[in-house]
Write a protein that binds this DNA or RNA. Structure first.
Length: 599
RNA sequence: GGGGCGGUAGCUCAGUCGGUUAGAGCAAGGGACUCAUAAUCCCUGGGUCGUGGGUUCAAGCCCCACCCGCCCUACCA
């Protein structure tokens, strides 16, 4: 039994999240975590909303509200969406808690104490009216290379060249049009070159494990070749105060410095809310995990790889004093580096990149209001951007739902329960099984091994495809056995056997599907008189542990999850005529949704 | 500019270490069945594996060049 940390990317709270986000980190991390719990591991699944940084400030200013108000509102929306999807977080919190600020500052102090946080003067753009950092991408002007008027400070979209914002002719702020001021400013830089050897050693070990997706490990090794110190503070009045610079209210920690610390701070917050406030150490300190090992899996979209395979491990190494400059760990002790960075690619939408501003977007909320959560989960699991970009189209969503979920799996459940209800009213006792019966039972039981292995290797598309293949085998068995023809008295034992075998296989398949489709797994189990098989998360309103404002969290008790393997049917369990678990979609859904996009 | 990914049936994709006749689902055509949400099951047709070279007894897979699409590029998060 291992301690498994499921570290799930923190959704940014500048607005509601779209289905591309939950396809990238949400559903895959939940499938993995649910499966790991079923195989007996101690899983700690943490995340929260990321609420600092310039974009939130900009969005708040546009609405005329405070950044805290904007973050509060979006945090609540995101919490509601994620819990409705059934994502089984042990704790989904936020970066604006006092606990998080304290942990982030402790990490900062540790990096500073060990000499990896270096103060340097740099030249940066600020907004003259607010004094805030103006990130490169918020500056636009005329490209000095091609003359294009809408070039951004970091890159010209017209000619594709990378730019420095000081190169731009007639630079202006994209936020309010004013001319940015380039000023000398003091910042703390994380000394990545002093950590590069340690990072390389860690990445080489990880590569040798052979578990990382090839493009993720390659990309990570690649960006290590040209590391430079990176600023970890900003001229901003929204964020976590910089230790030692409390007298400078416009200096804050860089949002990415604190966001990745969320994995640790959320683990600590989770422990502080249990009876053992030190319990988090079992997932983080090498010596504290007990008999098993402590493993950590980080789930995100590919745009986040650099922060999880470079910045975050660099912060951990610096805090632990494991870089070229040496040092000692702080009060949290030596902290485990990521076991695996599990990055997905991007989901596109009818062939185009998601873009809120261009209205190329489908919000999680809108899908959940109109369709079953498990229909979305099924699409993501079966056709998501696991290894390469994949495309969401409404026609494919309708097809997957109707042909695979409803007609393939749902119909098998329904025909099985209907026949048992009509002929026995309860789970019948099986008679002597035939070779065919035994072969099917063996095929299905063996699938636990192959499917589990695939999930453990983050090959979820192959895993769910394997289950659906087995579902097809069971459908074929039913068609070949033709139990509806077994009507004579002397055929009743054979009928009982066929239906018992079928029901057992359905229960098995349902258990295998439960990490993917938790909502419907519970309903299918109920149809066949079984218990809840997929514990669900809940939203709780909690007090800040250190005196801040209260907020909603996602949490849950997932200990009742059944083991990963066959649970024999209980003969005599009453079975009623079923109502369908899955909703078939009308083909007009496609046109309706496409019309909605064009509005 | 640099780095990476992809191009396989009408569509969406799988294809392990180079090894027999390149697979699945959907769509199309035909049939069976009636337990089930008109669901299910069987059969059939369908391929110059982006292009051109190379290595090899053997290439979808390895090497080189090119074409097309996409992603990342470290101060957006």
């Amino acid at each position: 039994m291992s301690k498994i940390l499921s570290a799930v990317a923190w959704p940014y709270a500048n607005g509601p999240r779209h289905i591309g986000h939950v396809a990238g980190f949400g559903v895959p991390s939940d499938v993995f975590s649910r499966y790991m719990r079923m195989t007996g591991h101690d899983v700690l699944m943490v995340s929260g909303t990321d609420e600092h940084g310039t974009p939130i400030l900009v969005a708040a200013d546009e609405e005329g509200v405070s950044p805290r108000e904007l973050a509060d509102r979006n945090n609540r929306l995101i919490v509601e969406d994620l819990v409705a999807l059934g994502l089984s977080y042990d704790l989904f919190t936020r970066t604006t808690t006092r606990n998080h600020a304290a942990v982030a500052q402790e990490l900062f102090r540790g990096c500073l104490r060990n000499g990896y946080m270096v103060e340097e003067t740099t030249r940066g753009a600020i907004s003259p009216s607010t004094g805030r950092t103006l990130p490169d991408r918020y500056i636009e002007g005329t490209c000095p290379i091609c003359g294009y008027d809408g070039a951004r400070g970091d890159q010209c979209d017209n000619c594709g060249n990378q730019l420095d914002p000081t190169d731009l002719i007639e630079p202006r702020s994209r936020i309010n049009g004013e001319t940015p001021e380039f000023v000398e400013t003091q910042h703390y830089f994380l000394d990545l070159p002093a950590l590069a050897d340690a990072l390389k050693q860690w990445l080489d070990e990880r590569e040798a494990s052979g578990t990382w997706r090839p493009n993720v490990i390659r990309f990570s090794q690649n960006i290590l070749a040209e590391v430079r110190p990176r600023a970890m503070t900003r001229d901003l009045d929204w964020g976590i105060p910089v230790p030692g610079w409390e007298d400078q209210p416009t200096k804050r920690l860089y949002v990415w410095f604190d966001a990745v610390i969320g994995y640790l701070s959320a683990s600590i917050e989770w422990a502080r809310r249990t009876e053992d406030p030190e319990a988090w150490r079992q997932w983080w300190n090498p010596a504290a995990s007990g008999e098993g090992e402590a493993l950590s899996y980080y789930f995100m979209g590919k745009d986040n790889i650099t922060f999880h395979s470079q910045i975050w491990p660099a912060e951990l190494l610096a805090y632990d004093g494991r870089g070229d400059k040496g040092g000692e760990p702080g009060e949290y002790g030596s902290l485990n580096l990521p076991t695996e960075v599990v990055s997905s690619e991007f989901l596109t939408m009818e062939g185009k990149k998601f873009s809120s501003s261009k209205r190329v977007v489908i919000y999680v909320r809108d899908v959940l209001e109109r369709y079953q959560a498990d229909a979305l989960r099924y699409f993501i699991c079966a056709a998501g951007p696991e290894n390469q970009d994949s495309d969401f189209t409404w026609s494919e969503f309708v097809r997957r739902t109707n042909d695979e979920l409803v007609a393939g799996w749902g119909n098998l459940v329904n025909r099985t329960a209907s026949m048992i209800a009509a002929r026995f009213g309860e789970i019948p006792q099986a008679g002597v099984p035939t070779e065919t019966d035994l072969a099917l039972l063996a095929t299905v039981e063996q699938a636990f091994g192959t499917v589990g292995d695939l999930i453990g290797r983050h090959r979820q598309k192959a895993a769910i495809a394997e289950i659906m293949h087995v579902v097809g085998e069971v459908n074929r068995y039913v068609s070949e056995q033709e139990p509806w023809k077994l009507k004579a008295d002397d055929e009743r034992e054979r009928l009982a056997t066929v239906l018992h075998v079928t029901a057992q296989c359905v229960v098995d398949c349902n258990l295998m599907l439960s990490p993917f489709l938790p909502h419907s797994a519970n309903r299918v189990s109920a149809v066949l008189g079984g218990p809840e098989v997929a514990p669900m998360p809940v939203v709780e309103e909690v007090e800040d542990l250190d005196g801040g404002p209260s907020y909603p969290v996602i949490t849950g008790d997932y200990r009742s999850a059944p083991g990963w393997g066959r649970t024999p049917l209980v003969v005599g369990t009453p079975i009623a005529k079923p109502t369908p678990v899955f909703t078939k979609l009308d083909v007009t859904v496609v046109d309706d949704e496409l019309a909605r996009l064009d509005q």
